[in-house]
């Protein structure tokens, strides 16, 4: 089992310069994440949640405040932190096996142990037999499995997920959510997932960070004290989901109540057969 890291974010501010004007993207983010914890980050578009992940992975350099992994400030990208993007971002000229091995290119391991790790992870995401397939031959769900294997093969301490299942159909999505949960339990690592799917956030998260937009701020943090694997149909699950959804009720105006039908068939007629 890989070592799970703690993540400490203190007074994090980030702005982009647009037309010579500073535009705040993230404002005063404070968050402590315990080793092995799964954090869901939900928010409508424009709340800077993807930027937050890019800062933690080390793809964005300029920010104010502190981001510390196990007490160490992050400097650039690191093999200790893996990421799954919304699009699979596989290299089309490499096979499944070679795509996963990309993460280990600069890992300090023997080629034998790299080979073994790649195959173990192919098996883990259920793609045994597809080692030599090209990304162009895979479905969206399979490609995302490869992307998950690529993010995990270097045994990171933190896994970041940027709307990882957002582009998949509902059935594949719930299937992969279940598998991700199993995989992360095996690996025992810390995970932060950004999503705009509240159900997904409740299903996977130990805590849910609710963000609000312009500029991106943390509105509140919701605990999800439910045993895993979680039952999406349970009352407790629905209650938490409704609680988080309520945060977005201002943004999404409730639909106007439909006027009663004034013509056509009478209601009694409709249900008579």
């Amino acid at each position: 089992m890989a070592h799970a890291a703690a993540l400490e974010i203190r007074h994090l501010n980030k702005q982009y310069i647009v037309d010579n004007q500073p535009m705040p993207v993230l404002e005063n983010i404070d968050l402590s994440i315990n080793p092995g914890e799964f954090i869901s980050v939900v928010g409508s578009s424009g709340c800077g949640k993807s930027t937050l992940l890019r800062l933690i992975i080390g793809l964005e350099k300029e920010y104010q405040g502190e981001i510390r992994v196990d007490g160490q400030p992050i400097v650039g990208t690191s093999l200790e932190r893996g990421i799954v993007f919304q699009e699979h971002r596989l290299f089309p000229w490499l096979t499944v096996e070679q795509n996963i091995a990309v993460s280990l290119l600069n890992a300090n391991q023997s080629s034998k142990s790299k080979h073994d790790a790649v195959h173990a992870h192919i098996e883990m995401v259920g793609l045994k037999g597809f080692e030599n397939a090209w990304p162009g031959q895979l479905s969206g769900g399979m490609s995302q499995r490869v992307a998950i294997a690529r993010a995990l093969v270097s045994r990171p301490e933190i896994l970041l997920l940027d709307e990882p299942f957002g582009a998949l159909d509902a059935l594949t999505r719930s299937h992969l959510q279940r598998e991700l949960q199993t995989i992360l339990r095996q690996e025992g690592i810390t995970a932060i997932m950004v999503t705009h799917d509240v159900e997904e956030a409740v299903y996977l998260g130990d805590r849910i960070v609710v963000m609000e937009p312009r500029p991106g701020r943390i509105k509140r943090v919701v605990d999800v004290p439910l045993a895993r694997p979680r039952d999406r149909g349970s009352y407790a699950f629905a209650a938490i989901k409704a609680d988080v959804m309520a945060d977005f009720s201002e943004v999404i105006a409730p639909p106007e109540p439909a006027p009663p039908p004034t013509h056509g068939l009478s209601p009694s007629w409709r249900f008579s057969w």
Binding site: I57, G58, L59, T77, S78, L79, R81, G82, I83, F85, E87, R89, F91, V102, S103, L105, N106, S154
Partner: peptide, 16 residues
């Protein structure tokens, strides 16, 4: 750029 991000996350050297 999406692919460049992947390469940076995997710590590619300039030659890689």
């Amino acid at each position: 750029r999406d692919w460049v991000d992947v390469a940076r996350v995997s710590h590619f050297t300039p030659w890689q």
